[in-house]
Simulated assay, not measured.
Amino acid sequence: MVRYLARRFLLMIVILFIVSVIIFSLVNVLPGDPARLMLGQEATPEALAALRKEMGLNDPLYIQYLHWVGNILHGDFGYSLRDHSPVLKTLLQKIPVTLELTFFSFVVAILIALPVGILSATRRGRLSDYLGTFFALSGISLPSFWLGILLIYLFAVKLKWFPPSGYVPLSENFGKSIALMILPAITLGTHLAAELTRMLRSSLLDVLQSDYIRTAYAKGLLERAVVIGHALKNALVPVLTVGGLQLAAFFGGSVITETIFGIPGIGQLVVNAILTRDFPVVQACVLFMAFMVVVINFLVDIAYSIIDPRIKLGEVSKG
């Protein structure tokens, strides 16, 4: 296991290196002059030239890249071109917001997908199965922006059960923070719930056809004991894969949801940074998203062996 973890760690470093090169290259081909963005349109050519020299913009790209990576390794992500604030400080302020939204969205997805997926698989060909399949297809097909607007109109404007938008930290007002998170969590979690429901139904149907499941029924075990105690655990392996990938996507894919509900998270931060050509912020946000994807995939690989002991870490790494 130690060798596997060491290989995975080295692979993470290689992936992050490749991602950093891509990020740096793409950002540098975007139109816009960082020096002019900082000094404004009224800046003199002399002031622009002096600032470009100070920022190292006249150096070759590989020198700029090495300087940027070296600063990151020392915890310096640079300064925002828009308000001159430290990028790392801004990012650390936004991460808890997105983590909170991601957590509640994942909880919503699990609370929906597990019962619906199990019921759909164990009642194949019945009304509950058709309803579960309809939910899975509808949840995947519905655009998140449309669902978010619909939820705001129905539950915030018409019924007035929840506030329409905004954000309050949990530490500041726990009740209000939860109330503000319910609608965006449902919006973001519905799509994941649909994906997990479809995958869980398919996987569970395959497992229920296994010989050991028929043996368990032959021994007189109740259906609940067979499904929950034997079949579900083995059916969760492909579900875990989909859930891990979708969870990683939440860190970069919640842009629309954060915008609709006025949640000041990483998604909204990176969109604003792109629109204002705030290159240091864009680089830091995308690098953080890539880091989270790599870490979550690593944790998913570890979870494989916990859910199903027959899967060895070495075999997972080869796959």
Results as ranks from 00 to 15, higher is better:
Trp161Ala: 11
Ala216Ile: 02
Arg224Gly: 12
Leu39Glu: 02
Gly243Tyr: 02
Asn173Asp: 06
Val293Gly: 05
Ser25Trp: 14
Ser25Tyr: 12
Ile274Lys: 06
Val227Gly: 13
Lys160Asp: 11
Gly244Lys: 07
Leu151Phe: 05
Asn71Ala: 13
Val69Thr: 12
Gly78Cys: 01
Pro34Tyr: 00
Val295Ala: 06
Val157Met: 15
Phe162Glu: 09
Val255Ser: 03
Val282Leu: 00
Gly32Lys: 06
Trp161Pro: 14
Ile307Met: 02
Phe135Lys: 02
Ser317Cys: 14
Gly56Asp: 01
Gln246Ile: 12
Val19Phe: 00
Gly166Gln: 00
Gly314Ala: 04
Tyr167Glu: 07
Gly139Asp: 09
Leu269Glu: 01
Pro169Met: 05
Ser25Gln: 11
Val69Gln: 04
Thr215Val: 14
Phe250Arg: 03
Leu91Ile: 07
Val227His: 06
Leu16Met: 10
Val157Thr: 14
Ile22Ser: 07
Leu142Ala: 13
Arg198Pro: 04
Leu269Phe: 08
Pro163Val: 04
Leu92His: 09
Ile311Gly: 03
Gly265Cys: 00
Leu81Cys: 04
Ile260Pro: 06
Gly229Met: 01
Arg3Ile: 15
Leu200Ser: 00
Gly40Glu: 03
Ala35Lys: 04
Thr197Tyr: 04
His74Pro: 13
Glu42Ala: 12
Ile228Phe: 12
Pro34His: 07
Thr98Arg: 05
Tyr217Ala: 03
Asn58Phe: 02
Glu195Asp: 12
Gln93Val: 09
Ala50Gly: 08
Glu42Asp: 13
Leu192Val: 14
Ser128Trp: 10
Leu101Thr: 06
His191Pro: 10
Thr276Asn: 10
Phe279Gln: 05
Arg8Met: 11
Gly78Asn: 08
Gly132Asn: 08
Ala109Cys: 09
Phe24Ser: 05
Pro31Lys: 07
Leu192Cys: 07
Arg7Leu: 14
Gly75Gln: 09
Val27His: 05
Gly32Met: 03
Leu91Arg: 01
Ile13Arg: 08
Leu137Glu: 13
Asp308Thr: 02
Trp146Leu: 10
Pro34Gln: 02
Leu73Met: 14
Glu46Asn: 11
Phe162Asn: 12
Gln93Trp: 11
Gln41Ser: 14
Leu204Ser: 01
Arg224Ser: 15
Tyr304Asp: 05
Tyr4Asn: 15
Leu99Glu: 05
Leu11Asp: 14
Ala121Asp: 05
Gln93Ile: 09
Gln246Arg: 13
Leu51Cys: 02
Leu208Ile: 08
Leu150Gly: 12
Pro169Ala: 08
Leu180Thr: 09
Gly262Met: 01
Thr90Cys: 02
Ile311Tyr: 04
Ile18His: 12
Gly40Trp: 03
Gly252Pro: 07
Gly267Arg: 01
Leu48Ser: 03
Ile95Tyr: 04
Gly252Ala: 00
Ile13Gln: 10
Pro60Thr: 06
Ser165Trp: 03
Val87Leu: 08
Ala216Phe: 06
His84Ala: 14
Lys318Gln: 15
Leu11Gln: 13
Lys233Leu: 08
Arg82Glu: 10
Leu313Asn: 10
Ser80Glu: 00
Ser317Val: 15
Lys312Val: 11
Lys176Val: 15
Leu137Met: 14
Asn71Cys: 11
Ser141Lys: 09
Tyr79Ile: 08
Thr241Ala: 00
Thr122Val: 13
Ser203Tyr: 04
Met199Ser: 11
Val237Ile: 13
His230Asp: 09
Lys158Arg: 10
Ile140Trp: 06
Met199Ala: 07
Gly40Asp: 10
Lys318Tyr: 09
Val87Gly: 00
Pro184Trp: 00
Gly252Cys: 02
Ser80Trp: 01
Ile296Arg: 01
Tyr130Pro: 10
